[in-house]
Design a binder for these strands. Structure first.
Length: 503
DNA sequence: CTGGGGAAGGGGCCC
DNA sequence: AGGGCCCCTTCCCCA
């Protein structure tokens, strides 16, 4: 018996030893696999970066090929007499400053600017004029990157240097003069002062950097998707500062007259490093140097986008100018868009369990909620078409009421004096323009902490996070389906109404 | 190809 | 003026 006990004890000890050994082996295998996995991940990330760089190079090459095959592009110049600047920045690779409504401009091709590594500190933009009197129809953009000549994108003008991206008005090109814009250190905003026209021009000068990568890389984001720390690829953006660009023409050509003709037809737009005029830019750099990074995270947060502020064009009778402003602080973590907001979601599941219970957090004017409050319906199966139609009409009527309260004609009550510099769309306040212009600039300052999605508006991020939280506040009263968005519910209601989405 | 849902873009209104 | 919310529209994906 005793032997049996000893035997069992020995077996137990052996089993324990074997188990420990097995665990150790498993741990070792896991560690090895993990190391291999990380190595593979690192390699994949490197490959992604390399491919991204190749893609950028290819894009640049394509753009250059276009140059060779077509006319030189023009930088769109904003001029009071010529209307508001229009243009479109796509992908953060274009700079376009254009006088809308000026037919004498040869074409409206925005210039594609590839910032390369983003370390450019010296840019020269040559503006080519259609005629002697008017501003040049096109702008050649020359760039010399003094700090990093090796990475010069060589956007030299002339037949080979200009990068035409789009042609809005590909009219034949008459002989033209040249104007140049020299950007000493790059700038998100450039104020063009045309002395020949004796008026102040404001051009949101967006020099977009492609950098060595884009923010879509998770590893480039800070923890939890926060903006990267100083010193990342965003940093070069801040080297761009606001400058005044003078149309030298006959008078102020001394600033940079190397690129112009000697006759009066030429006009030089020269950027100047004036500390008094570049409060934004200098402050930006200063703050960056101090490590006040968060303040400017917005400016550099999005792919290919330089600045977020200062593009607003306030229109008055005398001048068209860009109103610069201090950048917003865009930090997704500071938007408090987390689980704490889930309480604000409309949860009709609660309504289903207790239709009479009202949620104080629920917006009282929610059409869907109004629907449920006013017309508690049976949740039984079997859609009632007439009933659904009533519900749907209530939704629509609530919308109509909401609009009626707003005066019907949107914007009529408020003067839309803030114009988007890209599309001339008018807005009633500065903030709206800034948000809207993210459409053109691609700025998406709000990033989801749980995925790589980025949004231009906080509300979009908040809405998106329902994907992660599983919140589906909008419930169909007919079939218990729930939706994350009210629009989805509204669309779904049409199913019960028998309406076909595609007729 | 169609129906339907998920999700984002964008704009307007209200507080 | 700024922020938030609501709404419409659109794209994408899947069955």
């Amino acid at each position: 018996m005793a032997n049996c006990m000893v035997f069992h004890t020995q077996i137990a000890s052996v089993m324990e030893v074997l188990a420990n050994a097995a665990v150790a082996d498993i741990c070792k295998l896991v560690d090895d696999d993990y190391a291999v996995f990380r190595l593979e991940m690192t390699q994949s990330q490197k490959e992604n970066r390399a491919l991204r760089r190749k893609l950028q190079l290819l894009e640049l090459k394509v753009a250059r090929d276009r140059v060779l095959a077509s006319r030189p592009s023009s930088v769109k110049i904003l001029d009071r007499n010529r209307g508001m600047a229009r243009g479109h920045l796509t992908g953060g690779h274009r700079i376009s400053v254009k006088p809308a409504g000026h037919n004498t401009w040869r074409d409206d091709q925005p210039i594609t600017v590839d910032e390369g590594s983003g370390t450019a500190t010296h840019h020269v933009i040559v503006i080519e004029s259609v005629d002697a009197e008017d501003a040049g129809p096109g702008i050649k953009l020359e760039r010399s990157e003094g700090e990093d000549p090796g990475q010069s994108t060589d956007i030299q003008t002339g037949a080979a240097g200009v990068l035409p991206v789009a042609t809005e008005d590909p009219t034949p090109t008459p002989p033209r003069t040249r104007r140049s814009i020299t950007e000493v250190s790059g700038t998100p905003n450039a104020v063009l002062k045309s002395e020949t026209d004796t008026e102040t021009l404001t051009v949101a000068h967006r020099l977009l950097h492609t950098g060595s990568g884009h923010r879509s890389d998770p590893e480039r984001l800070g923890p939890l998707g926060c903006p990267p720390a100083p010193g990342t690829e965003y940093l070069p953006v801040f080297h761009q500062s606001q400058k005044t660009v003078n149309s030298c023409g006959n008078t102020d050509g001394d600033a940079l007259d190397s690129g112009g003709d000697d006759d009066d037809l030429s006009c030089f737009y020269t950027t100047e490093m004036d500390s008094g005029n570049i409060s934004l830019g200098l402050e930006t750099q200063t703050d960056l140097s101090r490590g006040d990074w968060n303040q400017y995270s917005s400016s550099v947060y999005s792919e290919g986008c330089l600045d977020k502020k200062g593009e607003v064009i306030a229109v008055d009778d005398v001048t068209v100018k860009v109103e610069g402003d201090t950048p917003l602080t865009w930090n997704a973590d500071e938007t408090h868009l987390g689980e704490g907001h889930s309480q604000d979601f409309l949860d009709y599941r609660e309504s289903e369990t207790n239709p009479n219970e009202t949620n104080p957090n629920v917006s009282s004017h929610s059409p869907v909620r109004t629907l449920r409050d006013r017309a508690p319906v049976s949740t039984s199966k079997g859609p009632s078409d007439s009933h659904c139609r009533v519900l749907f009409d209530q939704v629509l009527n609530s919308n109509d009421r909401a609009r009626a309260q707003g005066g019907g004609n949107t914007g009529s009550s408020k003067e839309k004096r803030f114009l988007c510099m890209f599309c001339n769309k008018g807005f009633s306040c500065l903030q709206k323009v800034e948000i809207h212009q993210r459409v053109h600039t691609g700025v998406k300052p709000f990033s989801c902490t749980q995925c790589d999605m980025r949004f231009a508006e906080a509300g979009s991020l908040k809405r998106h996070q329902r994907v992660h939280t599983g919140e589906k506040p909008y419930s169909c009263p007919q079939c218990h389906m729930r939706f994350t968005q009210a629009g989805s519910l509204k669309r779904h209601l049409k199913v019960h109404m028998g309406e076909r989405l595609f007729v």
